[in-house]
Design a protein around this nucleic acid. Structure first.
Length: 590
RNA sequence: CGGGGCGUGGCUCAGUCCGGCUAGAGCACUCGGUUCGGGUCCGAGAGGUCGGCGGUUCAAAUCCGCCCGCCCCGACCA
């Protein structure tokens, strides 16, 4: 490709709205342009890199038996109503009506379409197992798109779906994906870890997320360096140490004016925060058949811990949770700042499982300015649900080995889900097994965002001059720069010829044939960040030589003109081998 | 959805507080010349409904109201 013909330009300055490095560099280097919040165009450079990423994905999916297909972006709402997700998912779903006033959905994912296909195509155990996938546009009207390509509303995802006759089959395909995903990210030279995760709106049994660790990430992860346990904070378990046993003391009402926070309370009474009970009020939207009901949820955790909203939502099977308003709190007989589980009416009480083991806590009195001492679960109040409700944090004890957790941030670049029969049941996907028995098809679903992957690679590989693409993801392999000098076409002729020769040798070349000064050309080359650079200058062609440079190194090497192709080829081979070495077996961790 | 910020030519920004002549600068773009290994230099040009609508005023980029868009923090999120 001649740069004089390329449909995009580099920018000397990044647009003001770009903050994170990948966003700034992808804009400046001319890879992407924004159309609206969370909606981007992939320019030719980005498209080429995305093609490389997607081809790596294809390669790895095909290697585990995947069959590529394409499913529609626009769906009739009917199938989403069948699985209830039409009702369960809120404003994040893109909905519109067609000309006949029929409800339509913009695909957020494709379980419904797959399930519809399965019930029509799969009749017999002979049709199983299968692995199908596509690379297709998704629309999720995210409330807050941000950070360039990291979090967008329209995006492209590879999503694959496994169809199995039994749970062992699902297990096998799940593990195949587990490894294939590591292969994919390693081949993109993107370091990731797999963590256990919440099943969220997908429903299902087990899920892992593939996380690229970076401070700009939006997910908080807990890692145990001792045993390797890793999980998204949303579901991370932790070891809670039960306090020493105490005799239950009689409840005692005490005046605690202006004492609305746990810290105030602990200070005033001179007790540790772990001797208090913290109350959190939420309104939960809970699906009941086709309808939803709003319930007031009163959650209780120990004062030294935080409520985990994902765990709470899962405990009460809520589709949505929001903080309750003051009026709603008063309506159930609680007092904001002085709330207590003792003597509540009409609330769903959910208590962390450490609370019943923690005797003689200080809790609110449901009366402004008063708390109760020596409140004990079982004697003074009971809960509708007792379960793990708290968020794991830096320094907490590992649930597996007793080590200490470390907290890091990450971007989710992929995920794998064991769906089980959630969709098969609601959409009637059954097959006949060998005994003629009708059984549900067991499904799995697996996603990778290709644009997000590109952004993460850009986020990982850059320096103060610009991008530094791994050879496997670079839009071109070689940046060919010509510096013509004055009144002499010799360099241009040599470079033109080299462009032809390299291209004919199957090498992908971006040829900067523009009439620009050397400084501009070098800076653009560094900004765009192709792994190899060849400079053909007036000065050097006189000695029949050219300059070779790696983006990743400051060294410049003078080589004979005639050796250029050999040199480029061997360097590409070397860089590709480096990447290949990163592809290794990863032990499965559940 | 809550909090904050911003919106002036393709990009970065000044001007807005305190209303007043043809609305400015740098970069990018076009033309001419110059330079030629790290964002050359000189000259000439083209390009703007000052986000939109309404109001106040002799006069609005500037003041007031409503709306829209974009960014950041939070809530949310396969």
């Amino acid at each position: 490709m001649r740069m004089s013909q390329l449909f995009s330009q580099t920018l000397r300055e990044a647009p003001a709205e770009a903050e994170v490095i990948s966003h700034r560099l992808l804009l400046r280097a001319g890879f992407i342009r924004q159309l609206a919040a969370g909606i981007f165009t992939s320019m030719p450079l980005a498209r080429r890199s995305l093609n490389k990423i997607e081809n790596i994905i294809r390669d790895e999916m095909n290697a585990i038996g995947g069959q590529e297909m394409t499913m529609p972006v626009v769906h009739p709402a009917d199938i989403w109503k069948e699985t209830q997700r039409w009702y369960q998912i809120g404003s994040e779903m893109g909905r519109f009506k067609d000309k006949n006033n029929r409800d339509m959905v913009l695909a957020m994912t494709h379980e419904e379409v797959v399930a519809d296909l399965v019930r029509k195509e799969v009749r017999s155990y002979r049709h199983l197992p299968r692995l199908i996938y596509h690379i297709q546009t998704k629309w999720r009207d995210d409330p807050r798109p941000r950070a360039g390509l990291i979090r967008v509303r329209e995006f492209t995802m590879k999503d694959s779906y496994t169809l199995d006759a039994d749970w062992e089959g699902l297990d096998f395909q799940y593990r195949n994906h587990y490894q294939a995903y590591f292969n994919i990210f390693n081949r993109c030279n993107l370091p990731v870890i797999a963590v256990k995760s919440d099943v969220g709106m997908m429903g299902g049994k087990m899920a892992h997320e593939y996380m690229y660790l970076t401070p700009i990430g939006e997910d908080t992860l807990l890692l145990c360096d001792k045993c390797g346990y890793s999980a998204n904070r949303q579901i991370a378990l932790l070891k809670k140490e039960a306090p020493p046993e105490e005799k239950m003391l009689p409840v005692e009402k005490i005046a605690t004016p202006d004492c609305k926070t746990i810290i105030d309370l602990a200070n005033l009474l001179d007790v540790p925060e772990s001797k208090t009970a913290k109350a959190v009020f939420m309104m939960a939207t809970i699906p009941e058949g086709m309808e939803t009901v709003e319930k007031f949820v009163f959650a209780v955790v120990r004062g030294d811990m935080e409520v985990n909203e994902t765990k709470l939502a899962n405990a009460v099977k809520a589709k949505e949770l929001r903080p309750a308003t003051e009026e709603e709190i008063l309506a159930v007989g609680a007092e904001p700042g002085y709330a207590s589980p003792v003597g509540l009416k009409g609330a769903l009480v959910v208590v962390d499982d450490l609370i019943p083991q923690s005797p003689n806590l200080v809790a609110g009195a449901n009366e402004e300015g008063y708390h109760l001492r020596n409140v004990n679960y079982g004697r003074d109040y009971t809960a509708d649900i007792v379960t793990d409700l708290v968020s794991a944090q830096e320094g907490n004890i590992c649930v597996r080995c007793g080590g200490k957790y470390r907290e890091v941030r990450g971007v989710e670049v992929g995920n794998i889900f064991k769906l089980g029969t959630r969709y098969s049941d609601s959409m009637g996907c059954t097959y006949l097994d060998k005994d003629g028995q009708e059984k549900p098809v067991i499904m799995g679903s697996y996603g990778i965002g290709s644009g997000r992957c590109l952004a993460c690679v850009a986020e990982e590989h850059n320096d103060e001059l610009g991008l530094k693409w791994p050879i496997s993801v670079a839009p071109f392999q070689v940046h060919l720069v010509v510096l013509p000098g004055k009144n002499d076409q010799k360099a241009v002729q040599t470079a033109d010829q080299m462009f032809v020769n390299l291209s004919q040798a199957g090498i992908e070349v971006l040829y900067d044939d523009r009439e620009e000064s050397p400084g501009v050309k070098f800076n653009d080359a560094d900004l765009i960040g192709l792994p190899l650079r060849i400079t053909v200058s007036d000065r050097m062609v006189k000695q029949k030589s050219v300059e070779f440079k790696l983006r990743n190194s400051d060294e410049k090497e003078t080589i004979a003109e005639g050796d250029a192709i050999t040199k480029v080829k061997s360097e590409i081979t070397r860089l590709e081998a480096e990447i290949k070495n990163k592809v290794v077996e990863v032990p499965f961790k559940d």
